[in-house]
Design a protein around this nucleic acid. Structure first.
Lengths: 208, 208
DNA sequence: TCATTAACGCGAGCTTGCTCGCGTTAATGT
DNA sequence: ACATTAACGCGAGCAAGCTCGCGTTAATGA
């Protein structure tokens, strides 16, 4: 979804451009390793990557744009499970997410990205559509479960997966404590129970 | 928990100090009204409050410290429900949180605070202990429910309330869509179902 | 292979964010 | 009431963040 653009007229995505892109995104990630987001700066990214400061600002406009692209780049790693049952799929995905954010650098990156979205509206819309897209993609496993009769027919797939992810972001951004395997386990069982109880159906009973 | 300090020796919390504090915190909140967090700056806060820029930096060190105090100040408004049953309490609290963050200025404030924690370690520890404290306080309603036999005996009260809050922060910070009453309803029913299923017990069955 | 022109390197310089020292105001103890 | 000294107002000035113009390098199409 991120790559494979039709290469707009009058642009040069190959060769040098791609190399500097890789160098810069890698530098962002490494830089998050020592010092985390508080220590991150365009200056340091420029130094580590060997790409000039002015180039960073020209291509990414600001640090916000840069960290957003870095997150989208890395997120391609998390796969979509298909174990045959929804609780199995939820559990597998939860542990994949847990492993993903267990990495300190990824934790730093998601912090950076949320801070970026808060400060820069353009980054906010980029991330909004990115997460929407991911919910749509991973939502397939819920749709399969509904087809198998594991869940109510009017279950909102996106809501289920938002509920699966929510505890991780709460842990990282609000509670600010480590992401461990127990969290993944808890998230998976909680969502499974809640979904079966109809907490994520589109038409819920009472309104007040 | 925030007020009622024993007034440390050689300090003057009364009169002028208190007035400027009120003026500044109010200015932060109002400033978040037009423009939100992206438009927030120490300069503007100084102008609106009539307090000099240097004073802001002296008392709060940086904008991070300022928004943290603003959040803590405002959060005193959310009460602890006691309806007699846990699902009732969860529902009441969920809707209170929903109303709280439905306000655009509060939404801007929580964004500001998370961004502050990401960038400034000192603010991060302040917020960490603040949210810990809130989980302990609101956890009482879960403890009561356990005493009534509504939930498993080894249920972790803090985990239950973290799970109740998580969807709101996900909605605000990640999905970036409006906080509505449906979200509160969904969160309450989901947590109730999950807690009954034992998703938040301290000793969970399988580990892998 | 060669012309065209994105994309980049470089450094001067502007802007914004923040600090510091000094004089003034007003809260607090006696 | 009066002396003491937090807390604040003020403006100069430093530093970090960011921009801009120009010359250079290398990707792309013919």
């Amino acid at each position: 979804m991120t790559t494979a653009h039709p290469a707009p007229r009058g642009t040069r995505p190959g060769g040098r451009t791609a190399r500097t892109r890789e160098a810069v995104l890698a530098a962002v990630f490494e830089e998050l390793g020592d010092g985390g987001y508080p220590a991150l700066s365009m200056e340091k990214i420029a130094q580590r990557s060997g790409v000039h400061l002015a180039t960073l600002y020209r291509r990414w406009r600001c640090m916000e744009g840069l960290v957003c692209e870095a997150l989208i780049d890395r997120s391609a790693a998390v796969p979509l499970p298909d174990t045959g049952t929804l609780p199995g799929d939820l559990r597998a995905l939860a542990h994949a997410i847990g492993a993903f954010y267990g990495e300190p650098r990824m934790r730093g990156l998601i912090e950076a990205v949320v801070a970026a979205a808060a400060r820069d509206p353009e980054s906010a819309t980029v991330l909004r559509s990115f997460f929407e897209d991911r919910l749509r993609t991973t939502g397939q496993m819920v749709d399969r479960a509904v087809a198998r009769g594991e869940l109510p027919a009017d279950t909102d797939a996106a809501e289920v997966l938002a509920a699966l992810g929510a505890p991780f972001y709460y842990r990282i951004l609000i509670a600010r404590r480590p992401v461990d395997r127990a969290l993944a386990e808890s998230a998976a069982t909680a969502v499974w129970a809640a979904a079966r109880a109809g907490a994520y159906t589109r038409a819920r009973p009472a309104d007040d």
